[in-house]
Structure formats: structure tokens, C-alpha cells
């Protein structure tokens, strides 16, 4: 399975944020998307998630040789600020989600099994999401996004504000599920990208470029990334 970005261009008025991007992401890998503030990472995610229209080009999903246009249901989007319906309890949110998506979910588990998988304690399951901590809301958001097994998971800095335990749990969970998904992980934290991601992709000046690890150690890789972000070095 491949996500193909084909000649995608996105403009805001006269400013071009994404310049005719051509790139292919593959299943089974976690891609670390790095870029400076304002480089267009969230714009790229918003375009992939159909929240923004692109000016030119197309997103495709290729499965077993069949290429089709990317649909919203192919995407799971986890934001850094967790977005959950605060007027529902954790259990109600899952109940609703499972009912709506029952046709799409193969081998559904029980609600409590999902809670167990996400390490959400028994006593928290029937509390309003409004009263959940940031980390717990984030877990719920992640859970809902992976239950339906979307082909592509977009993660916009999801671990930045989590405590170390929850962040480690989430990293482990991402490693476990990556074999079935294309995971694109946007972050500012280089160490996180290097420790979690299989590939590093840089969004700079509206273009996506993969940084080849090529047997570099972490320090060398880090320097290479910084140089690429500063555009001091040619890495083509």
C-alpha cells in the first residue's frame, strides 16, 4: 500500500505553501515529518484530511496495484490538541463510534477490550471526556483513529505534551500498529523523530525531501537534518 502525492500545489493567495509536491509514502513505516514553523506541515495534513482544498494535483492510494483517489475514510488524523466530544463519557464515545463504523470494523472487540488496549482505567471509562486529562483525551483520540484501521494515520505532534509514561505507551503502540498503516508523524523534536521514525522527511520551501540515513549515526543524521532545514547543504 502506498500513498502517492502527485504534483500537489497549495496556495494561500499569492503565497505557495506546497509547491508541486511529488512523494510516495509506504505501508509499514513511520515517517517523521520535520519542518520549521510555518513550513506547511499542518497545511499538508489538512489537505490530506480534506479540510482544505488543494489548488492542483491529487492524492492517491495504491493498493495491490490499484490506484484510486484518496478518500476521507482512508485517513485517521490525530491532532496535538486532543479533540473529543466533551459532553460524552469515554464509553459513550466509543459506543457511538463503533455503531457508526460497524460495517467498516473487522473483528470488533468489546468496548472494555479497547479500553484495556489503550490502558484506560476502569474507573475512568464512564467519566465525561470533559474531565479527562490531556493525556487521556489524547489516548481516546488515538484509539478512535486506529479502531477503524484507516490506511493512513496522520499524527500532528501528538506526543509533545504527554507525560513520559503515556508518551512511551503511545510510541510502543505506534510501533505495534505500523505494519498495517502508513504513519506520518509531524514533530519538532528531533530526538523523538530519530528514535521512533523509520524515515525522515523534510518539508522545506514547499517541497518534501527524504533524508537518507545511509548508515549515519544519530548525531550525524541530526546535523544533516539541521543543515537541510537551514538550507545550507544540498541533500538532493
Amino acid at each position: 500500500m502506498k500513498l502517492i502525492i502527485d504534483q500537489v500545489k497549495k496556495q494561500f493567495g499569492e503565497k505557495t505553501v506546497l509547491k508541486n509536491i511529488n512523494f510516495t509514502f509506504e505501508k509499514g513505516k513511520i515517517y517523521g515529518l520535520l519542518g520549521r514553523n510555518g513550513a506547511g506541515k499542518t497545511t499538508l495534513f489538512n489537505c490530506l484530511n480534506s479540510d482544505m482544498e488543494i489548488n492542483e494535483g491529487e492524492f492517491y492510494l495504491e493498493q495491490e496495484g490499484n490506484k484510486k483517489k484518496l478518500k476521507p475514510e482512508d485517513i485517521g488524523y490525530v491532532l496535538s490538541v486532543p479533540t473529543v466530544p466533551e459532553f460524552l463519557t469515554g464509553r459513550e464515545f466509543l459506543t457511538f463510534f463503533l455503531e457508526i463504523n460497524q460495517a467498516k470494523i473487522e473483528h470488533p472487540k468489546t468496548i472494555d477490550e479497547y479500553f484495556e488496549f489503550m490502558k484506560i482505567k476502569q474507573e475512568d471509562r464512564d467519566r465525561l471526556l470533559k474531565d479527562y486529562s490531556h493525556g487521556m483525551k489524547n489516548k481516546m483520540q488515538m484509539l478512535v483513529n486506529i479502531i477503524a484501521k484507516p490506511n493512513i494515520l496522520l499524527l500532528d505532534e501528538p506526543l509533545t505534551s504527554l507525560d513520559v509514561v503515556v508518551a512511551e505507551e503511545m510510541k510502543q503502540m505506534l510501533r505495534e500498529i505500523k505494519k498495517d498503516h502508513i504513519i506520518i508523524f509531524s514533530t519538532h523534536i528531533m530526538e523523538l523523530a530519530l528514535s521512533l521514525c523509520d524515515e525522515i522527511v523534510i518539508l522545506s520551501q514547499g517541497e518534501l525531501t527524504e533524508i537518507d540515513r545511509n548508515q549515519l549515526n544519530d548525531v550525524e543524521m541530526k546535523n544533516k537534518i539541521i543543515a537541510a532545514l537551514k538550507e545550507e547543504e544540498s541533500y538532493a
Binding site: 480534506s50 479540510d51 476521507p72 475514510e73 482512508d74 488524523y77 479533540t83 457508526i100 483513529n145
Partner: peptide, 14 residues
Amino acid sequence: NCDHSMLTYSFYKE
């Protein structure tokens, strides 16, 4: 209290 969060989920936007 609702759509602000839910509109980030693709199933909700179908």
C-alpha cells in the same frame, strides 16, 4: 462543544 472536535474525524465528515 461538539462539531469543533468531531469535524476532525473523517467518519464524521462523510
